[in-house]
């Protein structure tokens, strides 16, 4: 889990960069495949990116599996990550994954549903061919980070048209701004907590929220972007 993810927010965004981001996710979290699908009602667009083998993508499209695949249709209605073992009783699951083995695709996976502020929904699905115990251990370990990554991909994809970008101008609270301002001044999170008289955990939860609102994966990226947008002062 040492590889760093390239922050999508700063890249010129095209389909290629999204797919290569999925590759990075797989490399970093020890996964086989990843897929993102999302709908943006503002731009009335549907987006999908996968790093599955071409043969499986063809099979999936030709058989219209997206119309029955419960990892898309059912999982999006949960608020929590949905392990595919929870879906294997549904009618579509057996059909979707019946031939998957032949394409080297496992039915061991999970889907992280994302909800955005404008009725937009997205799903990041990941798979790994391994034993049940191994999967249990891995998914437990990577879920917190994967949650953040899923929202990062979703937000970036949803901002790929001009109208949505204007709508999604980062709305930072005073608290989030002042914490970023002190971080920009070189203070550690502990220092910031002491200066503002708030707990370390409060600093952390606001910093994480501020970072995600700025579509950044790391704090330095968030600071840079906040300065660029004139939300905090360069020091």
């Amino acid at each position: 889990m040492s590889t760093d993810l390239i922050d999508l927010g700063s890249e010129s965004r095209n389909a290629g960069s999204f797919v290569s981001f999925l590759d990075q996710i797989c490399a970093r979290f020890e996964l086989d495949h990843a897929a993102y699908a999302g709908t943006n009602p503002v731009a009335s667009a549907v987006h999908g990116y996968v790093n599955y083998p071409d043969a499986w993508k063809r099979h999936y499209a030709e058989n219209g599996l997206h119309r029955i695949d419960p990892t898309l249709l059912v999982a999006s209605r949960s608020i929590a990550p949905v392990d595919w073992s929870r879906l294997d009783q549904t009618a579509g699951f057996e059909k979707t994954f019946r031939d998957a083995r032949d394409f080297g695709i496992t039915n061991r996976g999970l889907t992280i549903p994302v909800r955005g502020p404008y009725g937009d929904i997205g799903m990041l699905s990941v798979t790994r061919d391994c034993s049940a115990t191994e999967w249990e251990k891995l998914s437990r370990q990577i879920l917190p980070d994967l949650q953040s990554v899923a929202v990062h991909v979703h937000d970036t994809v949803m901002r790929s048209d001009v109208l949505s970008r204007a709508l999604r101008y980062p709305a930072l609270s005073t608290r989030e701004r002042e914490i970023l301002q002190w971080i920009a001044a070189g203070k550690s999170q502990q220092d910031v907590g002491d200066i503002l008289g708030i707990s370390h955990r409060t600093v952390e939860v606001h910093l994480r929220s501020g970072r995600e609102k700025l579509y950044a994966l790391t704090t330095p990226q968030a600071v840079g972007r906040a300065i660029m947008l004139g939300l905090i002062y360069p020091l």
Partner: peptide
């Protein structure tokens, strides 16, 4: 990250500040 009470109906509790939003 999506619509919820603090972002849509309880905003007054936040003194007019935008709500926290995090995955």
């Amino acid at each position: 990250t999506g619509p919820h009470m603090l972002s849509d109906v309880f905003q007054v509790l936040l003194d007019g500040e935008p709500p926290l939003r995090s995955a």
